[in-house]
Every structure is written in C-alpha cells, then in structure tokens.
Computed example of a mutant assay.
Amino acid sequence: MRKKRILITGAAGFLGSHLCDRFIKEGYHVIGMDNLVTGDLKNIEHLFPLPDFEFYYHDVTKFIHVAGELDYILHFASPASPIDYLKIPIQTLKVGALGTHNCLGLAREKKARILVASTSEVYGDPLVHPQKETYWGNVNPVGPRGVYDEAKRYLEAITMAYHTFHGVETRIIRIFNTYGPRMRLNDGRALPAFIGQALRGEDLTVFGDGSQTRSFCFVDDLVEGIYRLLMSDYSEPVNIGNPDEISLKDFALEVLKLTGSAVKIVYKPLPVDDPKQRKPDITRAKELLGWEPTVGRAEGLKKTYDYFKMLPKEELVKQPKTFESR
C-alpha cells in the first residue's frame, strides 16, 4: 500500500519543523520545503537520515514542482514575527500572495487537500473580544503591520476562491500566539524576548503599560489542532489557540518567577497598531474537531525555558538576520 505523501512549506521553521515530526510519526512520506530566510536546518536535521523525509531548498514564490503523487499540502511558509516582516515587507507580501497561489495551483494539479496557515492578525486590533471566526477584523492596510495582516487576509481570500471556483479541498487555520521549543530567541515576539533577556541578565522590555493581552498556546496543542483540521471536512476558517488570556505585564512577571532572574521590567512606547487584546473563541474547534488545548501555561513555559537554557551561549546573543527586500 502506497504511503501518503505530504508537502510542508516553511518546513525548517518553528511550526513547520514540528509538523514534519508529527507527520513522520503518523507514517507519512514528508517533503519539506524552505528557502531558509527565517527557517533553520537545525530544526529538521534529525529527519535527514530517514527514508520517508526529503528536503527541497526552494522559494515558494517561484513555480513549485513536486514529482509524483501528493495527498496533502501544509502551507506554512511565511515570516511570522514583527522583527522579520518589518525588515522584509516585500517578501512577506509575496509569500502570502504568490506563494499561496503557487501552493494552491499545485494542490489543484495533484488533487491534493491543502491547509493554509492564517493568523489571528487578520483580526487586527480587534473591536470584538474574544475573537470569533465570523469577525471581519479591524486592520490598517497601510500601517507597518499591514504587510503581514493583509498578506494573510489575501491568503484566505484566494484559498476560498480556489475552493469555490476550482473545487480544491482547502482548510484555513487561524493561529493565535504559539510557543515552544525551536522558537528563535531574537524573533521579536514577547515570550522568546522575555526569556532571552532573562537568560542574558537584561531587564525585560514591556511595550506600552503592559495591559495589552495575549493568549499563548503550546506548540504540541497547536499541531494537534492542525492535524485534526486537515483531516476534517470543514473549509471555513477555524481558530486554533489557547483562550487562557494574560496581560503582557503579568506574563513578564511569570517569566521572571520561572527564571529566577533578579532583573526588572522596563517600559517602552507601544509600537504602531499593536493589538490591545488577543483571545480566541475556540467554540468552532471544540464542536467540529473535538479539540481544545491540554497543556497549561506553567507546563509549557517550563518546557520552553528548559529548551532555551540548553542553547549554546552564542545563540543567546545572536542578532536577527539581515535581509534585502526585493
């Protein structure tokens, strides 16, 4: 019996690498694809000796060719942190538009089911709380975050167009803040930033007054939600995230307690269009997928902190990549 084959774009990234692990474990032949702009081969090098894993070094904004049959596609190629998409705005827009178009074209050609990674950022700075999938969002298309927000909104629109016009089997996941091992310490997001600062003995930087909220989901829970959504028969967007909401100030205090660091919290001006609150309504995921998170923040934070503590010292001070926009 032929093994099912799945293409995972963004395979060397934080989420993509965990998805490669999951589908190898499920008995699939996994084809990982990444141009390594923000991904890192170290995240998947343990898979290279396996006969059921292969890696394509490729930019999905270029034409995608995969030989042979293909059953599923997971499109996770995209910068996902502010420090990245503010430095490479053009690539961010291109991967959301051209990259998604190419993946959908491949799915149509291969008659494969495709799941695309959208984000809670499609809700912008929300005027509805918690955020339901039926909420259309409050997004500034010309603000600094617009390159990411609108890239993902376009991703959803073209995915639904391929579903309704071409009959492609599509799934859309809206991912809320996710954390866990293999995150990059210097990617600009709150959790790795706080832990990295604590490990370096630096004060923790909180933007604004720290009252803005986030809801953090451990990566294992997210991967389970992705797997269930891919195997479902539902084509509308589905929120996957942990609704346990916390202010960034309180979250910084949790990190200080976890790390035992004696540093203090310092406050800096809030970035433009930074969302004031973020909490998923996961009713749809519960009802359709039987999914809800199982890993509490205390457990997930410890696992993540233990991972970061094991990193070489040079990783703690490593500066973010520099990019050229084209």
Rank of each mutant, 00 (worst) to 15 (best):
E69Y: 10
L70V: 10
L70I: 10
H75S: 13
H75F: 08
A77K: 04
S78K: 00
S78H: 02
S78T: 14
P79G: 08
A80T: 15
A80K: 03
S81K: 01
S81W: 02
P82A: 11
I83S: 14
D84C: 06
D84A: 13
D84F: 09
Y85P: 02
K87D: 10
I88Y: 01
I88P: 00
P89I: 06
I90A: 07
Q91E: 13
L93N: 02
L93G: 10
K94L: 15
K94M: 15
V95F: 05
G96V: 12
A97Q: 07
A97T: 15
A97W: 03
A97P: 00
A97M: 13
L98C: 05
G99N: 11
T100A: 11
H101T: 12
N102M: 04
L104S: 12
L104Y: 08
G105V: 00
G105A: 07
L106Q: 08
L106I: 08
L106C: 09
A107Y: 02
A107P: 00
R108T: 02
R108V: 01
K110S: 08
A112I: 06
A112H: 05
R113D: 02
I114C: 08
L115T: 05
L115Q: 14
A117H: 03
S118V: 10
E121T: 12
E121F: 09
E121L: 10
V122A: 04
V122I: 15
G124Q: 10
D125E: 11
P126G: 04
L127T: 13
L127G: 05
L127A: 13
H129T: 11
H129I: 14
P130V: 07
Q131H: 00
K132C: 10
T134Q: 06
Y135S: 02
Y135P: 00
Y135T: 03
W136I: 12
W136S: 11
N138F: 05
N138K: 06
N138L: 03
V139E: 03
V139Y: 10
V139P: 04
N140Q: 09
N140H: 08
V142L: 10
V142H: 03
R145I: 05
D149M: 03
E150S: 03
A151D: 06
A151T: 06
K152P: 01
K152D: 12
K152S: 12
K152E: 13
R153Y: 06
R153K: 15
Y154S: 08
L155N: 09
L155T: 15
L155K: 03
L155F: 01
L155E: 15
L155D: 12
A157K: 09
A157H: 09
I158P: 00
T159S: 15
T159I: 06
M160V: 08
A161Q: 10
Y162F: 15
T164I: 14
T164D: 07
H166S: 13
H166G: 00
G167P: 05
V168A: 09
E169P: 00
E169F: 00
R171G: 11
R171Q: 07
I172H: 02
I172F: 01
I173D: 02
N177I: 09
M183L: 14
R184D: 05
L185V: 11
N186T: 12
D187W: 02
G188S: 07
G188H: 03
R189D: 09
R189N: 09
R189M: 12
A190C: 08
A190G: 05
L191W: 11
L191D: 01
L191S: 01
P192H: 08
P192F: 09
A193I: 04
A193Q: 13
A193M: 15
F194M: 13
I195L: 12
